[in-house]
Structure formats: structure tokens, C-alpha cells
Design a protein around this nucleic acid. Structure first.
Lengths: 215, 215
DNA sequence: ATTGTTTTGTAGCAATTGATCTATAATATG
DNA sequence: CATATTATAGATCAATTGCTACAAAACAAT
């Protein structure tokens, strides 16, 4: 019953996420959103209540497609260590490939949206827990198969990796340098007895891991 | 010559930094600034050119008083390891004591201000280098006196610590939990062979380990 | 006192903001 | 077909935005 929607919700949310990601929440106007999604203000507010509602939905889809997908895919790898290494490798890779240096939409949003918005803070927090649990699970499994040493509390270890990921995303915005981003992951992987960096594309000259300082 | 200023620039910048820190750059209006600083719009624009100018000056003073002061103070400690441990300890402590969970003004700003503002990005980047250099110097010194093992590249190690600090400040905003923040630092300190946490649940004991004043 | 220079106070501009209005169009169901 | 229901389109609202014009005020130098 009623007139059917003329727009693809997935496409709309993708376009909205794109501009929110690029400009930030506050700096994105409803007219920006109307333009990039192709929606009229009426349709926008009818479908998503308000600007914040559209933002939440857009961020949700972004996380589902970017973060959740990655975790599910990596958890299927036979080697738990490869999952952890792969996670960092993909993040570094994506951070460097984004010429606009937008970092991570989740991290960006976490710091911009007002601390008074408790519901949103809770949502962001739960997403970081998702990442933390991924690390936790892979470390436990890695220790079980003898791939990862068990000389540190697993919960703290997982949280340290989480913190490194968040910090990496921040640094990716202001200092998008391959040596920096790849380098900082090294010691953490060494702690887990995992090889870093992973084998790169044959095109690029691979950098052998040495103890010598470069430059 | 000319009419003298009726306001204390330091106080004004402090008040401005406070509200920028709390609400973020975009969400802070010039009227908010006029109210909390006590300045009239005319005085504000006469003294700081525009909103961005005031923000930069306010952030600059914040960093000088918060970050720079801390680094100088900690570098005077006889033990390089204590300097590193103290740095993390103070950040965790401050993050937990801030009931508004505002995190770090530098990190917050880094992610909110538009990536097109190259000058600002450069400024933020240089500040992160300051932190990185602090870690680098303390690690080198710690290795020299045998306090810190030398099994990892120092530059990568310093950068990993930097990343952990940045991540910690992000997490402090959305998950201000003592167990989380203190815990994630543990493995990193263990890697440097440094004791963590520095103080064991100071129940009724007064903080007297150092003579430094904690504001 | 006069002049020159800078700061301060008030009012308000032009533009933009998030959001809503009314009217119309497109569907399902009876 | 008639009716109920929902979506779309375009205009526009009231409020807020960053910022400025203008004149009065407070000093130093002459």
C-alpha cells in the first residue's frame, strides 16, 4: 500500500556515507546530502527522520560492508596469525590508497559527534568491541595451535592491538606515510611472533625486515 | 600607541580552547566563543583574524601547556623508562578523570578539521612528531643504560607507542574504562621490560612517588 | 588640546542551516 | 472506481552561521 520508493536505499546510504566520511558530520549539510543522494529533502526526512538518523544508517551500512565483511572473511583463514596480519595489512593498504586521507569513518565519527549523544557513543563503543573480540579470538586460537606465544594476558593484548588500529587510523589522516604506518605495526606483530610486513605485490620492491634504521 | 587591550590573551585562549575541546571546531559558534571568552565579536576578529585563527592559537597554547610541559618535565627524570611509563600513566589518569570524556584536543581536532586545510594538517603532524621524538629519545637512552631491550628497531618502536597513545585517546572518549585503558598499555610496556601499572591501586595512600604536581 | 592609532561595543548583514509546508503523484486494497 | 496510504517535488520557514560596518572610547606622541 502507498506509493513505492523510487530510490535504492543501499545506494543512498552509500552516497551519504561517502560524503559524511569525507566532510564529517557537522560540515555536511542537508543540501550536500540531497545533492549526492539525489533525494529531495522531503524524501530524505520521510525515510530517515532527520540528519542524525541518516548518518546512523549510513555509518551502519559502512561498517557492515567494510568492517564486518573483513572480519568474517579473515576469520575463515586457516591460520589465526594470518588473520591478524591480514587485518593490519588491509587497513594500512586502504589508508595509503585513499588519496584524500579520510582515515576511518568510525574513528572520525567517534571524535566528532558530541559526547552528550550517549546512544551514539554506545554504538561506536560496541563496534570497537567487535574489533577487540576479533583480535581476542584469533589470539586465543593462535596460542592453541602454537602460532602465538602465551606470555601476555590475551584481553590486554587484544586491546593493545585495538588501540594500535585506532591510532593508525588517526595517523593515516595527518601522516599518510608508508614507512610510518607499516613500521609501527612491526613491533606489535613481533610480539605475537608473526611475520611483518606480509609479502607485498610483486610490482613493488619488498622491504626485508632488518634491525637497521632506514634513512 | 593606540588603545590598550582590556583582556588577558592567555585567559581568552584558555577559555576558547576549553569550549573548542568540549564541542569541537565546527560545533562551536562565534557566539559561544564570545560568551565564554567575554570578548565582543569586534575584539575577537581584531585580535585573531577569524574563527580558525583563534582556534589555532587556542590549540597552540593548549599543546604548550599540556603536551610540551609534560615532555620537558618527564625528560628530566633520571630513568628513561620512568619517563615513558609516566607519560602513559598521566594520559590514562587524565582521560579517566575527565568526566566529560573529551579525549585529547589534538586528536579530536586532527580528525574534524577538513583534510583540505593543509596548513593545519601539517601543524598536527608536527605535534605527533614531537611525541614520537620523545619516545625515540627515551628508548635510545633506556637501551644505553640497559633499562630497555634492543631487540626492535627504535623508530618503529617509538611509532608504535605513538599509535597506542593516539588510539588510547580515541578509546577514552567512547569507552572510558580503567581496566581497558590501563590494560592495553601493559603489553607495550612489557615489551620494553618496564613495570606496569606504575601504582597499585592507591586506596588510602597519598600519591608521593614523584614530586611533580598533578593539576 | 590635537592628532593618529588601536580597541571596544552595538547592530546587523548576507548566507546557510536543519527542517517543514502544501500540493501532487503513485501504488494497494475494497 | 473510490479510498487510504505513502512518496515526491519545490518552495520556504525560522533560526543560526561567520563575519563586518560604524562610531565611540582609550591610549601615545606631538
Amino acid at each position: 500500500m502507498g506509493r513505492p520508493r523510487q530510490f535504492d536505499e543501499g545506494k543512498v546510504l552509500e552516497a551519504a556515507a561517502e560524503i559524511f566520511w569525507t566532510k564529517g558530520y557537522n560540515a555536511t549539510s542537508t543540501r550536500d546530502l540531497a545533492e549526492c543522494t539525489g533525494l529531495t529533502p522531503a524524501s530524505m526526512y520521510n525515510a530517515f527522520t532527520d540528519k542524525r538518523g541518516l548518518f546512523m544508517r549510513a555509518l551502519g551500512q559502512y561498517l557492515e560492508r567494510m568492517l564486518r565483511e573483513r572480519i568474517v572473511r579473515l576469520e575463515m583463514l586457516p591460520s589465526p596469525g594470518s588473520a591478524i596480519v591480514g587485518f593490519f595489512d588491509e587497513i594500512v593498504d586502504r589508508s595509503l590508497k585513499d588519496l584524500q586521507h579520510r582515515g576511518c569513518m568510525l574513528v572520525n565519527s567517534a571524535l566528532e559527534v558530541t559526547p552528550e549523544d550517549y546512544g551514539f557513543q554506545l554504538f561506536v563503543a560496541s563496534q570497537t568491541v567487535t574489533i577487540e573480540k576479533f583480535f581476542y579470538g584469533r589470539i586465543v586460537e593462535g596460542q592453541r595451535v602454537g602460532e602465538i606465544p602465551a606470555d601476555q594476558p590475551v584481553d590486554d593484548l587484544a586491546r593493545m592491538l585495538l588501540s594500535i588500529v585506532m591510532g593508525l587510523r588517526v595517523l593515516a589522516r595527518v601522516r599518510p606515510d608508508p614507512k610510518l604506518l607499516n613500521g609501527l605495526v612491526g613491533p606489535a606483530m613481533a610480539m605475537l611472533n608473526l611475520a611483518w610486513p606480509p609479502r607485498k605485490k610483486p610490482r613493488a620492491r619488498s622491504r626485508e625486515k632488518t634491525g637497521a634504521k632506514v634513512k
